[in-house]
Design a protein around this nucleic acid. Structure first.
Length: 237
DNA sequence: AGGCCGATTACCT
DNA sequence: GGTAATCGGCCTA
């Protein structure tokens, strides 16, 4: 009975998604990508700031056994190796940052503060040490699993509103370092919904001590799943 | 071999 | 808004 309900729910959601997004929609001459198909390699090879902005509204799809989690990206930060002292790739290639210097479209996952993992999408061609940190997401599907993985029955907007929380909620750890995000698998990023440029806000980045003058953080204006911080126009507390 | 510090979070007042 | 927790990477010796 429960299973049947789930199937019906998913089917209705599927129909709604087709209605909302279409399968492959052309606007002008531009192909809008199917919301459940992985973003292409080419998407990640554009300049890193553009990719960081365009990743807003895209959907992280995480499969754990039979379960599926879908999470819409609402907050990103660009890290650009050649001029950005806050980037792990600033300076030279090391054991940790070598994935950042690889081809765009791979995951760069690192461990920080003895507790937390952070997920990045590598950008740019091989040899360029750039990546986009995924700082926050709105859980669209799989809330229950995410709550369990976070060890609390939490409200939806508290599940993945931070890079460490996001990795907990989606069970992402260092085993995903170097994982290809452009192929259907246990973790990839899909097309989602286009966020109009007017709804995107650019701010300074959070938690860094160098490169503070570079405004490389992007958020969806007014989304409730954005990290608590003074640089959140219009969002109190 | 040792020390420092970090792209964070949760819990305190 | 202040801070302890916690450990791996990277730099220096």
């Amino acid at each position: 009975m429960r299973l049947q309900c789930n199937c019906v729910t998913y089917f209705i959601r599927f129909l709604l998604a087709i209605f909302t997004y279409g399968t492959n929609i052309y606007i002008g001459s531009q192909l809008m990508i199917d919301p459940f198909e992985p973003l292409s390699r080419r998407f990640y090879l554009k300049d890193t700031l553009s990719v960081a902005a365009s990743l807003l509204g895209k959907i992280i799809i995480r499969k754990i056994g039979d379960a599926v989690i879908k999470a819409m990206i609402v907050e990103t930060e660009a890290y650009i190796g050649d001029h950005d002292p806050a980037s792990h790739s600033y300076g030279r290639v090391t054991g940790r940052n070598k994935i950042m210097y690889g081809i765009g479209g791979m995951a760069y996952v690192y461990f920080i503060y003895g507790n937390h993992h952070c997920l990045n999408a590598v950008t740019g061609p091989e040899g360029k040490g750039d990546a986009v940190l995924i700082r926050g997401a709105e859980i669209l599907e799989g809330e229950e699993i995410c709550s369990k993985l976070r060890n609390f029955p939490l409200k939806k907007h508290d599940l993945a509103n931070g890079p460490g929380k996001l990795c907990d909620a989606l069970a992402i750890d260092k085993s995903f370092n170097g994982h290809d995000l452009t192929r259907k698998g246990s973790l990839y990023i899909a097309g989602g919904k286009k966020i109009p440029p007017a709804d995107r806000i650019r701010t300074p980045r959070i938690g860094i001590s160098k490169g503070c003058e570079l405004h490389y953080r992007f958020i969806i204006d007014g989304n409730p799943c954005i990290t608590k911080h003074p640089f959140n126009p219009g969002i109190k507390k």
